[in-house]
Simulated assay, not measured.
Amino acid sequence: MRVLISGAGIAGPALALWLQRAGADVTVVEKAKSPRPGGHAVDVRGVAKGVIEKMGVREAIRAEQIDDRGFALVDARNRRMAELPADMFGGEGIVAEIEIARGNLARVLYDATAAGVTYRFGDKVAALTERGDVTFASGGTAKFDVVVGADGVRSGVRALAFGPHTEFVRPLGGYSSYFTVEDPGDLGNWSTMFNAPGGRAVVVRPEAGGTAKASLSFRSPAIYDRISRDEQVRVLTERFAGVGWRVPSLLAALPAADDLYFDEVAQVHVGKWARGRVVLLGDAGYCGSPLAGMGTSMSLVGAYVLGGELAAAKDPADAFAAYQEQMADYVAQGTQLPPGGIAMSAPNSRWMIRARAMSMSMMGHWPMKQMLAKQFLKADAITLKEYAPALTN
């Protein structure tokens, strides 16, 4: 079986690992010139923890984990108003047991597959048909039995085979940014969040090596469409002007940040994930947004299921149907927003900020704790099949 996977982030290399074990001829194409480093922290939850054990990468991930002790809400004087330790909810709460920088997880998966998979960096799919005929941006052409779009929320493969982004990407009314700053030295290995009126949220999250990841998010209609980096800096500076806490120092560091990420907060919903020999995986087909907190786990679980079904089926169409059937309920739950959605994450008024802090301070107590525990059970909302032994060697 000849398989082309577009996207060398998390979902793509995870699928490549399963398919190479099954004996497939796998190529991964990625528009970036090399594996992308850094990035914001992602987590591995529920059944996805069993998947990384089957993949044989758990120890490599353990070596790269972020020592994040919990999540705290603070006021402008840096006084804690509420805190949720990482071990609350059995390691499945806001901060999970396994937290790792996105780029580090991608590198672990790349290292696990580089010897048996062909990677084409600095290239992308320019055209394709549902029969698997592919033209690359570099000019070459090839035919594949399966083409997988694992290239994120704005999937190029999805746009070519399924339709424009506007049909599948649903803005949630806000924008988020991430960039690296020096560790301020007083985080105590806790992710710390500050809210300002006007739907503005600031998070500083510890990393290894003396750095931290800063996040500036704000509520807004979808008015910024793929703006330049200079425009991103300008928008963030204007939106967060006059905000206290650590924000002035974060804005001062922003222009020099070489890893600035800025995008709208959005979900992806695609009714049927396959057309002909083209299939979608991870954020390209189903994304709940960072607010839902299940993107990485759904990508890892989806790669395991899709890889197993492709290895077992004689016809890709049968594999795609089984993949969608098994994943449907899990994805439906994993893409659900928490109560309140973006309005709860970034309240507009001072009164709502205080009310949210009071609500969070009660999360460790009955009955709120029992209610939230049910919310976090969605990470286990699938029973995984066991596939051929060759896939788990």
Results as ranks from 00 to 15, higher is better:
A8Q: 06
P13H: 05
S34R: 14
R36H: 15
G39P: 02
G46P: 02
G50W: 14
E53N: 06
Q65H: 11
Q65D: 06
F71V: 04
F71D: 03
L73M: 03
M81V: 07
G91D: 15
E97P: 10
R102N: 13
R107S: 12
Y110W: 04
A114P: 04
A115P: 09
V117K: 00
R120D: 13
F121C: 08
G122D: 09
D123Q: 12
L128T: 09
L128D: 08
T129M: 06
E130M: 10
G139E: 11
V153G: 01
V157P: 08
F162K: 09
T166K: 13
L172T: 03
G185D: 12
G185P: 01
D186N: 13
F194T: 01
R200V: 08
V203A: 09
A208D: 00
T211F: 00
A214R: 07
R226Q: 15
R229Y: 09
Q232K: 15
R246A: 02
S249W: 14
E264I: 08
H269I: 14
K272Y: 12
V278Y: 05
L280P: 09
G282T: 12
G282R: 13
P290F: 12
L291I: 10
A292Q: 08
A292T: 01
A319V: 03
E325A: 15
Q326T: 13
G341D: 00
G341K: 02
A346H: 02
R354L: 14
M360P: 02
W366I: 11
P367S: 10
F376A: 03
L377R: 13
A381C: 04
K385I: 10
E386P: 07
L391V: 01
N393F: 15
